[in-house]
Nucleic acid binder design. Structure first.
Length: 492
RNA sequence: GGCGGUAUCGUCUAGCCCGGUCUAGGACGCCGGCCUCUCACGCCGGUAACAGGGGUUCAAAUCCCCUUACCGCUACCA
């Protein structure tokens, strides 16, 4: 069972989970599921200065919303915990010390100030092939080192990068990648505050948690040779690497809140369905190899494979997400979105605060609007006329449907509807068709003015279902109001 | 600057590993049309790409080299 697939998502709680992180999470999850492996969540909170309150909760919530459940990690536990790096500091410390003993690392007493100046000088000199730390403390004599340690001078622990060698590793989606060790500098493993850097913590944890594959964003590619060298220093076998392409905003830059939504929760708030975002994100960088686009979780999990992941960065196309969400809106149940819709209506002041989701009228409204909405928000926003009489009529539609003798037509319809004892949509349709025949006109000539009178707009659900839902009283009142409006705008 | 990554329609992508079947396929978007009580759906049609230059070869989107562009890293951040 030593070949079990174990992958991990290692977010740092510095903010929300953005869609790029979500896609990385998704691919990890898919890879684990498709290989019958385990998906582990580990919080990389080693940088106390960037820690943000509530970030962990937001990340967990985002993952759960997308349906990316983890087998080990926060709130679910597991055999390789703790899953918060801040609770594992002793482990990192002892491992760093171990590397000093084996001659792979050393204490560095250089001050941040000196390093800062060093960088500035290097910047100015523009020397080719020179970068990073100058290894000042690498050859400190043991006596000097001991005495500085004795006076408790703050220091870090750095890795000794070997000289004049090539480090290479295989990337599952990019092939062989090689680096010259001479282009790498002696990175910090343990910071002066006793916390590990990402590099150390990540290697130690991945090893101790028996991670088999590291699937992470491609901004980590250039850190990978350093990680490989750390594994080497410990005498450990490195896991297999796969670096996922990044997700860009439509202008080709980084995704950000300014350019629209960036976090998973933003998309939830914008009225997207988790199934749709899941499906859409899966197609960003991965494809099934045939023309399928709309696929269920199960279907994707079944055929997901890393060698069908492209190495190319992808632009997040919100229009396509909208389209896909529309497809999921059609197949999702009224019940699954009703709660969210009602909440939005309450927030907009359209329905009373104490409104509950068991009102059959609300269910009808949602079912009438659901199939023609691309997002839950769009649905909620297009429903106002179900709760309030229209306050104005769509300008273009007035010209089209409120012309000629519309007032007369509407009046006659009012009378007929008044006498109808049933407001069932089938009955209504018969009534309208009969009246159209009597007047020897197309039924559309009756339908359109009615719709405009009743809703104020020129589009929406089938008219008869609409009238049935609104009920006789509302319909007649609105139609009469439209007649009045028409009569006072005769000269238009 | 150095190092690394990437490069097919506006966008997501198939094809590239195993050159010919590619006058480069699908999807979103956009533009027409059909259906229809409107909208949406659906259907039909159109728009639009192999970054550039050299090779190799009978033949290159596919293999090799160079250039260019974009991105990342170059922290006691992840």
């Amino acid at each position: 069972m030593g070949s079990e697939v174990r992958v991990r998502l290692a977010p740092s709680p510095t903010g929300y989970l953005h869609v790029g992180g979500a896609r990385t999470a998704l691919f990890n999850w898919l890879f684990a599921k498709s290989k019958d492996g385990r998906f582990i969540l580990r919080i990389e909170d080693t940088d106390r200065s960037r820690y943000q309150e509530g970030a962990v909760q937001e990340i967990l919530e985002s993952l759960r919303w997308l349906g990316l459940d983890w087998d080990e990690g926060p709130e679910v536990g597991g055999d390789y915990g703790p899953y918060f790096q801040s609770e594992r500091t002793e482990t990192y410390k002892s491992h760093a010390e171990q590397l000093i003993e084996t001659g792979h690392a050393y204490r560095c007493f250089c001050t941040p100030d000196r390093l800062q100046k060093l960088r500035e000088e290097q910047e100015k000199a523009k020397l080719p092939n020179v970068s990073g730390y100058d290894r000042h403390c690498r050859n400190l004599s043991t006596e000097v080192g001991q005495s500085l340690l004795a006076v408790k001078k703050p220091h870090v622990i750095r890795l000794k990068i070997p000289f004049n060698r090539t480090v290479d590793f295989h990337d599952l989606i990019r092939g062989e990648i090689a680096y010259e060790t001479d282009s790498l500098d002696d990175l910090v493993l343990l910071k002066s505050d006793g916390f590990p850097t990402y590099h150390l913590a990540n290697v130690v944890d991945d090893h101790m948690m028996r991670i088999s594959h590291i699937l992470r964003g491609d901004e980590w590619i250039s850190s990978t040779p350093k990680h490989v060298l750390i594994y080497e220093a410990f005498g450990w076998e490195p896991p297999t690497f796969a670096h996922m392409p990044v997700i860009l905003s439509p202008d080709g830059g980084k995704l950000s809140k300014r350019k629209g939504a960036a976090s998973v929760m933003d998309y939830k708030k914008a009225g997207y369905l988790p199934q749709a975002l899941f499906n859409f994100l899966a197609l960003l960088g991965w494809s099934p190899g045939d023309d399928r686009e709309k696929m269920s979780r199960e279907e994707i999990t079944e055929i997901f494979s890393l060698d069908r992941v492209t190495p190319k960065a992808a632009v997040f196309d919100e229009k396509k997400l909208e389209w896909m969400n529309g497809m999921y809106m059609r197949e999702t149940s009224v019940d699954s979105i009703l709660r969210d819709v009602v909440r939005m209506w309450v927030d907009q002041g359209i329905v009373a605060r104490e409104t509950t989701t068991d009102d059959p009228y609300l269910r009808t409204v949602v079912s009438l609007l659901k199939d023609r909405s691309r997002t839950v928000n769009e649905l909620a926003e297009s429903a106002t006329y179900f709760f309030r009489d229209p306050e104005s009529y769509e300008e273009k539609a007035i010209k089209k449907h409120f012309k000629g003798n519309a007032a007369v037509t509407l009046k006659s319809l009012c009378e007929i509807l008044q006498q109808s004892d049933s407001f069932d949509h089938q009955v209504l349709e018969e009534v309208y068709r009969a009246q159209a025949e009597t007047l020897e006109i197309g039924v559309g000539k009756l339908i359109h003015p009615t719709r405009l009178a009743v809703t104020g707009v020129s589009y929406g659900p089938g008219l008869f279902e609409l009238l049935e839902a609104l009920g006789k009283e509302n319909v007649l009142r609105r139609m009469k109001r439209a007649v009045e409006w028409l009569e006072s705008h005769q000269d238009r």
